[in-house]
């Protein structure tokens, strides 16, 4: 029902018959094939799938950091022709500027505009208010003048998220942003990003290999299958919009998790865990 309604609205991101081939000749890799996907305004979509199935490639194409080789991609109705401030991206790591302090990192996009003379001093005033609000939102009010290498991994990612939000992007793209964090920090970050999502009303596409994370955060979970990368199944998450950690133990959550995990195994050529073990022992014995 819901899904039908949103599709008839103009989607924020529309991907049609999209394909991506890396290289040619013997190094040719068909990373994505026939991808059809629509993400509506203010939707939170997560992408999961086995490693190498093209999650990052799809996200990077949406972000304009990678070009596609067939099909089309529209963002806010316009063809994507390169990266732009309307589609902010949060990377797994190494994206903060270590020579700038936390506040300067967050204000980086404003600095670009100031340099170009695009902002009046009143705008700058408003911007510094926003930067401070974001810093508070991220729970780092006292860290404005710390340098990134003085922060823990979790704090660094919060700064990266604040920096991405600074320019009020319509779309927030995240590629395993919590992949390098420990489990406890990750849970905190999950609730934080859901809070941000509610407050900022952005459209979020979130790549992860962690199925639990994908279900907990997403309204829909898109499962990609490898070789060539293609959309296998799109699951609608049967949880209320307001998420809570306890829901991870609910029947609906656990059922969906089991279902998706099983499907990932199947699409990557392994039916069960014992298949995986067998394959591992086979590769071990041939070495």
């Amino acid at each position: 029902m819901d899904a039908h309604k949103v599709v008839t609205l103009a989607p924020r991101i529309r991907v049609r018959a999209l394909g991506k081939i890396f290289g040619d000749g013997p190094t040719r890799v068909e990373a994505l094939k026939d991808i059809d996907l629509e993400v509506c305004d203010n939707e939170f979509v997560t992408l999961v799938g086995a490693s190498g199935c093209g999650k990052s490639t799809l996200l990077r194409i949406i972000g304009g950091l990678e070009y596609h080789t067939s099909g089309e991609i529209l963002s806010s109705g316009k063809p994507v022709s390169g990266p732009g401030a309307d589609r902010a991206m949060v990377f797994q790591h190494y994206s903060l500027y270590p020579w700038l302090d936390v506040m300067e990192n967050i204000r980086f996009s404003r600095r670009l505009q100031v340099n170009r003379g695009e902002l009046t001093s009143a705008d700058v005033e408003v911007a510094s208010g926003r930067a401070e609000a974001l810093l508070n939102l991220m729970g780092l009010p006292n860290m404005a003048h710390a340098y990134p290498n003085q922060l823990s991994g979790g704090m660094q990612q919060r700064v990266a998220i604040a920096r991405a939000l600074m320019g009020r992007p319509e779309i927030l793209l995240m590629d395993e942003p919590f992949g390098a964090l420990d489990a406890q920090t990750r849970e905190v970050m999950h609730d934080l990003i859901l809070h941000v999502f509610k407050l900022e009303k952005a459209t979020i596409v979130f790549v992860t290999h962690d199925v639990e994370e994908a279900i907990y955060l997403g309204q829909r979970v898109v499962l990609l299958a490898p070789r060539p990368g293609r959309i296998d199944t799109i699951y609608k998450v049967p949880l209320p919009a307001q998420r809570h950690q306890d829901m991870k133990h609910s029947r609906e959550f656990l059922d969906l998790k089991k279902q998706i995990l099983q499907r990932i195994r199947e699409t990557s050529g392994m039916k069960t865990d014992s298949d995986l073990l067998e394959q591992l022992s086979r590769t071990a014995s041939t070495q």
Partner: peptide
């Protein structure tokens, strides 16, 4: 990632050279 982050914040090539590559 430092370069791409700047690109997704709308930085031009010249701005990336001045504000990312050189200071980094």
């Amino acid at each position: 990632a430092q370069i791409e982050a700047a690109q997704t914040m709308g930085a031009t090539r010249l701005e990336i050279i001045q504000l990312v590559l050189l200071p980094s």
